[in-house]
């Protein structure tokens, strides 16, 4: 058992909506100070998990603790920041007014702190909330989640609707939270969004946690699509049989293939010729599912095995 209390500890956590499975038998421990990426396609159970942790919905079976307390204990929620996946802001009140209310309800947040975050994210808080664009609503959501400097941040699809510059600023904010020793749980359906800041990722599919991995280990398993263009036609046999290279297609001066894990062998083989163009598509989660996890007969990997993998 850990000396430190886990920030989230779930045991057999299960939620059924009527007969529809939302989440089944989730065993998960998130440790203090880590950034945990929670990955899965839409409707796989990410939001269900988050809403169970926050006591928005109640488990059918199993149990979960947050910061050592039952989620039903309202006081513990003052130490948590939450960005909902579908943040709803409406009405003619200004965002600044709504943020003051949320701050007061959580025990008070200095106005300077709100202004500082608004400046960082370039959010205009003087606009009536019903008139905010999707991206600006998301910024208001981020401000309210971060503003009271919670010990634990739960961010459901935090980067949706943000332009790339703001995404970078957001990732910097997450890194600062980690540097403070605070904890983050962030969900996404795209690995690329979380891999640069996460220490570990959990992959959930059809309501079951199929794996928990260190990000570095997951990247090794990721499938990458690579396209190489040379200044002259290349002999196909120069690329055949390279470790990790699959679906190889050599057509004149171009080579396309997919790669499991490290691209080292391919790069060394290509280096014998003159490369004029290289395209490496970011590995996406769906391809990891299709290749790595779809091979498993039983998708329900016990948590201990998954974590030691």
């Amino acid at each position: 058992m850990n000396v430190m209390t886990a920030v989230v500890e779930a045991e057999g956590l299960t939620k059924f909506y009527g007969r529809r499975r939302g989440l089944e038998d989730l065993d998960l421990a998130i440790q203090p100070g880590e950034v945990f990426g929670y990955l899965g396609p839409n409707g796989s159970g990410k939001t269900t998990t988050i809403r169970l942790i926050l006591d928005v919905i109640r488990p059918t079976r199993g149990r979960v603790t947050v910061l050592g307390a039952d989620p039903k204990d309202a006081q513990v929620r003052a130490r948590v920041g939450y960005l909902p996946g579908e943040l709803s802001l409406e009405g003619r009140d200004r965002a600044s007014q709504y943020l003051r209310f949320l701050g007061d309800a959580r025990g008070g947040v200095p106005q300077a702190r709100i202004d500082e975050l608004a400046e960082r994210l370039e959010a205009d808080l003087s606009v009536p909330m019903g008139k905010l664009s999707k991206g600006n609503k998301q910024k208001v959501g981020l401000i309210q989640a971060f503003m009271h400097q919670p010990e634990f941040l739960i961010l459901d699809e935090p980067t949706s609707g943000l332009d790339p510059l703001v995404q970078q600023e957001f990732l910097a904010m997450v890194r600062e939270v980690r540097a403070d020793g605070r904890t983050v749980l962030m969900s996404s359906h795209v690995l690329a969004e979380v891999e640069h800041v996460s220490d570990r990722v959990g992959i959930v599919r059809s309501g079951r946690l199929v794996a928990v991995e260190e990000v570095a280990a997951l990247r090794e398993k990721a499938v990458r699509r690579i396209e190489l263009h040379f200044d002259a036609p290349v002999p196909p046999e120069a690329f055949e049989g390279l470790p990790g290279v699959r679906d190889l297609r050599v057509a004149g001066a171009s080579v396309t293939c997919t790669i499991d894990g490290r691209p080292d062998a391919l790069i060394k083989a290509a280096a014998k010729f003159t490369v004029v163009h290289l395209v490496s598509a970011e590995p996406d989660l769906e391809e990891i599912f299709l290749t790595y996890y779809s091979n498993e007969e039983e998708p329900n990997v016990p948590a201990d095995r998954a974590e030691s993998a």
Binding site: L54, A74, A78, Y82, L87, S88, E90, A105, Q144
Partner: peptide
């Protein structure tokens, strides 16, 4: 129904209150 309550119930306020 509009989704605004989602954030309200995650404030440190008990449901009955």
């Amino acid at each position: 129904e509009s989704g605004v309550l989602e954030l309200t119930v995650t404030l440190p306020i008990p449901r009955t209150s």
